[in-house]
Write a protein that binds this DNA or RNA. Structure first.
Ligand code: MN
Ligand code: MN
Ligand code: ZN
Ligand code: ZN
Lengths: 143, 143
DNA sequence: ATCACAAATGCAACTATGATGCATTTAATT
DNA sequence: AATTAAATGCATCATAGTTGCATTTGTGAT
């Protein structure tokens, strides 16, 4: 991780009036080092020295602020990824495809894929969408 | 619940070589009595006299057999609904829209809504899809 | 630099969901 | 009615997530 990257995270915390602390920067570093979402259990393993409760609180506040978004995988496990759409406090719009590999269980945020339009039955008013797909990912297809 | 409905459930269990037991028929009765999915906690409440573990095992075997499918709501809580597409053992295709109301938290299976087509990035091979939408449901919009 | 204080962390305890092993009961078949 | 595999119940455990409270720390003002 570069200086610049680290500064970017510090700036991000500043923006949201959050104190720049070790645990928070580490969460951002861990998550941004991967091209897939990170599961809560994995994250807990990576944050060895940090208390479990602290991690939960960091994840909650990051989600509230629109820094990260939560995705439940096929097993119902919480996964987290940094938001690329410019989400706001209490107003996410991560309306991209989430691909869950049935082999390695990784969750991919396919941000570039635009969701096709569709209509809801009368009476329903939609605010947010997510398209989930499951199958095998490029890595697992190679082998 | 009518005789005929009850017979339908008994037939369903027969089809999948499952014994026709009280707890199983009750789960089917409870779930089919509603026009929305049923959360595990709600179901546990409704099945007062039945052991928690038995309920989990019933839900698991029903899902395996393709009798019901599982939907995680916005809070990560498991919800269950009877399959209307003719799903097979270990081969579901409940590829419809799941609408999660942010007010009452109900999960609606909008079976009739066909999913629009879309393409995946190269390397990904999809097997199943689900479109999730969140917002306010007809009931909650009236009030 | 020091101070003051709100914010963040750590620790203990607790709740809820879900799984597993094993003894007991029961549905289905003979 | 007897047999047996399947299903249930009970005890126990594991993991995810929450809450209250004491302690520490980042930050902004002196
Ligand atoms: Mn995403
Ligand atoms: Mn459904
Ligand atoms: Zn994979
Ligand atoms: Zn509603």
């Amino acid at each position: 991780m570069t200086e610049i990257t680290n500064n970017r995270f510090e700036h991000l915390l500043d923006l949201h009036h959050l104190k720049k602390t070790g645990p928070r920067l580490k969460v951002l570093a861990m998550m941004s080092a991967k091209n897939t979402a990170t599961s809560q259990p994995d994250l807990e393993g990576l944050m060895e020295d940090v208390d479990r409760v602290t991690l939960y609180r960091i994840l909650n506040v990051f989600e509230e602020k629109g820094i990260i978004h939560k995705i439940f995988d096929l097993n119902g496990t919480a996964n987290y990824a940094i938001c690329t759409s410019n989400c706001q406090e209490h107003h996410h719009h991560d309306e991209h495809l989430h691909f869950n590999c049935t082999v390695c269980n990784k969750v991919y945020c396919l941000n570039d894929l635009s969701l096709p339009a569709f209509n809801l039955p009368p009476g329903f008013k939609a605010e947010g969408f997510t398209l989930y797909a499951s199958g095998t990912c490029p890595q697992c297809n190679k082998k």
